[in-house]
C-alpha cells in the first residue's frame, strides 16, 4: 500500500459543557499520513491546538482497537465515518485525499446530552441494562457448564447479538434516535439461550419501558442502525425483540 501525506480542513463541533451553546470551528491540519487512524489525526490536531495554547478537542476513546465502544464521532453525516463495520478508531486516513474537508459532530440525541465537544453522556444505555439486561444468577449458583447443551447455531446467533459494543451508533444513525438495535441485541442475546428463559417476559417489558423513559424514539424500521453498526448487529434482533414483546404482552401469565 502506497503511503502519502495530506492536508485537510476539519470542521469540528466545539461546546464547553452541557449548558453552553456550541458552534463549529474550522481547523487546518498538515502532513497527515495515510497510515494514521482517524483518532491519531485528531491527536495531531490536538497537539497543534495545545502548542497554540488552546484547549484540545474532547472526545471519548479508549481501546483504539474497535471493541470498547467508547469512540463516537459523527463524521460527514455518518456515525463512525464512511467505512462499514468500522469504529472511528479503526477508520484510517487512507480513506481521504489531500484537500478534503471533514465535518465532525457529536452523537445527537435527546437521550445522549453533550458533555463537552464531541463527548456525550451514554449512561442511558447502562440504565437500560439495569432494567433487565442480565440473568439473575448469583456467583456460586452455577452447575457444570456442560450440563446445559446449547445448539451451535443458537450459541452463534446469541454471540452475534452479544457482540454489540454499546457505542450508540445505532441511536446516532436513527432518524428517531431510537435505541432499538442496542436494546434488541441484549434481549436477543439472552432470549436465545436457555439460561435467559425464566426472565424473558419481564426482561423485555422492563427494558422497553426504560428505553422509552430515557427519551429514545420509536423504531420505524428504516434500517439505518444496521447499516451503520460497527459490529454488524442485525435488525433480525429487532424482529426478535418485537416477537418477545408480543409474547410477553399476550402471555397468560401475570
Amino acid at each position: 500500500m502506497e503511503h502519502y501525506n495530506m492536508n485537510l480542513t476539519l470542521k469540528v463541533w466545539r461546546q464547553q459543557n452541557a449548558q453552553s451553546q456550541g458552534q463549529f470551528e474550522t481547523y487546518q491540519v498538515k502532513d497527515i499520513s495515510s497510515e494514521m487512524s482517524f483518532l491519531e489525526m485528531f491527536d495531531v490536531l490536538n497537539e497543534q491546538l495545545i502548542s497554540e495554547g488552546k484547549e484540545p478537542i474532547t472526545f471519548d476513546h479508549d481501546c483504539r482497537e474497535g471493541i470498547c465502544g467508547a469512540c463516537s464521532m459523527f463524521i460527514d453525516g455518518q456515525p463512525h465515518g464512511p467505512w462499514s463495520e468500522t469504529t472511528t478508531c479503526q477508520l484510517h486516513m487512507r480513506q481521504y485525499k489531500n484537500g478534503d474537508t471533514i465535518v465532525v459532530e457529536p452523537w445527537r440525541a435527546k437521550a445522549f446530552p453533550v458533555i463537552k465537544d464531541l463527548m456525550v453522556d451514554r449512561s442511558a444505555f447502562d440504565r437500560i441494562i439495569q432494567a433487565g439486561g442480565y440473568i439473575s444468577v448469583n456467583t456460586g449458583n452455577a452447575q457444570d457448564a456442560n450440563c446445559l447443551p446449547i445448539a451451535k447455531d443458537k450459541a452463534d446467533e446469541s454471540f452475534a447479538a452479544a457482540a454489540c459494543i454499546g457505542c450508540g451508533a445505532c441511536v446516532a444513525a436513527c432518524k428517531n434516535a431510537s435505541a432499538m438495535l442496542f436494546l434488541s441485541a441484549k434481549v436477543a442475546h439472552l432470549a436465545l439461550l436457555p439460561q435467559g428463559e425464566p426472565e424473558r417476559r419481564s426482561r423485555v417489558m422492563n427494558m422497553v419501558e426504560q428505553h422509552d423513559k430515557e427519551g429514545f424514539g420509536a423504531c420505524t424500521n428504516t434500517m439505518a442502525c444496521e447499516a451503520e453498526c460497527p459490529k454488524a448487529i442485525s435488525i433480525l434482533n429487532i424482529r426478535r425483540l418485537n416477537a418477545e414483546y408480543i409474547g410477553a404482552v399476550s402471555s397468560g401469565r401475570d
Binding site: 459532530e105 434516535a177 424500521n221 428504516t222 451503520e228
Partner: peptide, 22 residues
C-alpha cells in the same frame, strides 16, 4: 419521534444508510 433529536446534525446521512421512502 421528531422531539428525540432536539439539536439536529449539520451534515445529514442522506441515502447512505437508509431509503428515502423509509
Amino acid at each position: 419521534n421528531k422531539t428525540k433529536r432536539p439539536v439536529d446534525y449539520n451534515v445529514h446521512p442522506g441515502n447512505k444508510s437508509s431509503k428515502w421512502y423509509s
